[in-house]
Amino acid sequence: MARMTSRGPVLGIAALYFLVPVAASLWFTIDSADGISFDVYSKGLGSEGLTTSLLRSVSVGLVTVLLGLLLMVPTTVAVALRLPKLRRVVEILCMMPLVVPPIALVAGVATVLSWQQDLAATPLYGTFQALIDRDFPLILVIVYTVMSLPFLYRSLDAGLRAVDLRTLVEAARSLGASRTQTLLQVIAPNLRQAVTGGAVLSLAMVLGEYSVASVLGFEPFAVWMVNVGDSEAQLSVAAAMLSLLFTWGLLLLLTALAGGRTRSRKQRKTA
């Protein structure tokens, strides 16, 4: 009872901390000379820049997550099962993006991209062009994949530590499962929550990332929002509100997909 009493004010303060800025932003977007109006939202949803930049961010985010998972799931599983001595090395490598500031990272990337002038006569020129395609900048996918490594690694590592993977794999093998069956039927389902957790964190990071995209001259959603804020402050804040709703929706969807089985287990337990 005492715990409940002390929890109330803490939750209240936390709620205020998050809700007051959101409420203030909402008020800023709907307060007009003629009273309350949602015109800026209808205008914002119809704005070409918003849809294009948001779709660009989402597509870059999803491909980043996919690439990150393709890289990290086999790596972490292999380290857990076969190469436990390499765990520290992999951990340090994956944590590097946390200690290297994105601005330093992008400075290096920009330097490499500037080489394309010298490579105009070589087949590599086409590769560079593909990397900096304005509609789908592959270079952002690559940089964001590197930046998402700490989130993916931490999440997968925690997931792998929560299960005795080696024993589960050996149990499956002794029962006659091939390597593929073991991977799909035993390892993957038990890593689903860890994979989803890492994916959600990485996606959230990509959707809100500004500095790398801005320095490289691309306009994903975060950059568009800042750019439009210079001329149309209300539209910029309205876009931020919409993106907040969109991101929450997306994250809730992913979490629900991962948590479905857990909830059904809990329900079964209480039944």
Partner: peptide, 20 residues
């Protein structure tokens, strides 16, 4: 012969049931 073709049943020290 690999483990999955030996037709051997094994019970492990740690709880090895598939949690899913």
């Amino acid at each position: 012969v690999p483990a999955h073709r030996r037709d051997i049943g094994m019970v492990f020290q740690s709880y090895s049931l598939f949690p899913n």
